[in-house]
Design a binder for these strands. Structure first.
Length: 281
DNA sequence: ATTCCCTCCTGCGCGC
DNA sequence: TGCGCGCAGGAGGGAA
């Protein structure tokens, strides 16, 4: 489920419950996700306070600290939801289900990580909050699409040397983070740009349109998810994700909401893309 | 360097 | 109803 908006909605939902709280215990059940969950977390985290909950791309960064100087612990829990992961609060003592791989046990409740497909990530990076930027998974990430450096000029030069179709390029996290398969299609639809168009053949002017489209698409999704944050994190993690009517995604064969034409589904770099041939060029 | 293909997993919907 | 197949919101790694 998680692209940038879902991760941000998750972050906003869990942050108020986590900030300043003490981690009482850690339960690790999964043999391994994408990587093995570090067993050392069982000793490192208990007694730590959660000092911040951040997001970088699709990664959640949970900063933890216990004491200071020698014998203290300071570091960041790196969490990625992968394709099918979710985080939710459950009552203490609630028995885990099949795909509940990780518990952060707090004084009054448990933050529980579930991930059927196990493409998710839970790792630890020691040091002050700023140090996590050097982690191999974080250091390679591109610009934040909702930050000020995601501009028409920047995008135009970034796309200049990419001959591939714009859609898979837009999904390349080394360039821009957070745009997954749904929002790539939705953003291109909003911008009126064909997913098939070579990235290098998008004018500076249209790069500006695309920047705005990405921003608006992601922001609208966050706003829609944000309206049901409580449901989102406290129930099954499914609510709040599809509050927004998709313009083209998963609408193959249906009528385009803008021009009435027929939405088409194609395959690009192994992923489904959806677009309206009438609106997107 | 860029791009494509494969892979890691489980679950679900579809056609037969 | 059961079964096999293809597909699913991510992304790293290897090959060309």
């Amino acid at each position: 489920m998680p692209e940038l908006p879902e991760v941000e909605v998750c972050r906003m939902g869990i942050a108020p419950e986590l900030l300043g709280r003490e981690i009482r215990a850690v339960v690790i059940r999964a043999p391994r996700l994408r990587h093995e969950i570090p067993p050392a977390l069982r000793e490192l985290l208990p007694g730590c306070l959660i000092v911040d909950v951040r997001r970088r791309g699709k990664y959640l960064l949970i900063d933890c600290r216990r004491g200071n100087g020698k014998g203290g612990v300071e570091g960041t829990l790196i969490v990625h939801l992968g394709m099918s992961g979710n985080l939710r609060f459950v009552p203490s003592e609630l028995p885990p289900e099949k795909h509940d791989h990780f518990d952060l046990v707090l004084p009054d409740q448990i933050l529980r990580f579930a991930d059927p497909r196990r493409f998710g990530v839970i790792l630890w990076h020691p040091g002050p909050p700023a140090a996590v930027a050097a982690h191999p998974l974080i250091a390679v990430l591109g610009v934040e699409p909702l930050a000020g450096d995601f501009t028409a000029a920047w995008l135009h030069q970034a796309l200049a040397r990419r001959q591939a179709p714009v859609k898979p390029v837009l999904m390349d996290g080394h360039l821009v983070v957070g745009i997954g398969n749904i929002y790539a299609s939705e953003s291109l639809f909003r911008a009126g740009i064909s997913p098939l168009r070579a990235a290098s053949r998008i004018s500076r002017l249209r790069c500006g349109v695309l920047v705005d489209a990405v921003r608006e698409t992601l922001s609208a999704a966050i706003a829609a998810g944000g309206s049901s944050i409580r449901d989102y994190v406290h129930s099954d993690g499914g609510a709040g994700c599809f509050q927004i009517q998709a313009g083209v995604y998963d609408r193959a064969g249906q009528n385009c909401l803008r021009c009435g034409g027929t939405v088409r589904q194609i395959r690009q770099a192994g992923r489904s893309s959806y677009y309206c041939p009438g609106c997107q060029h």
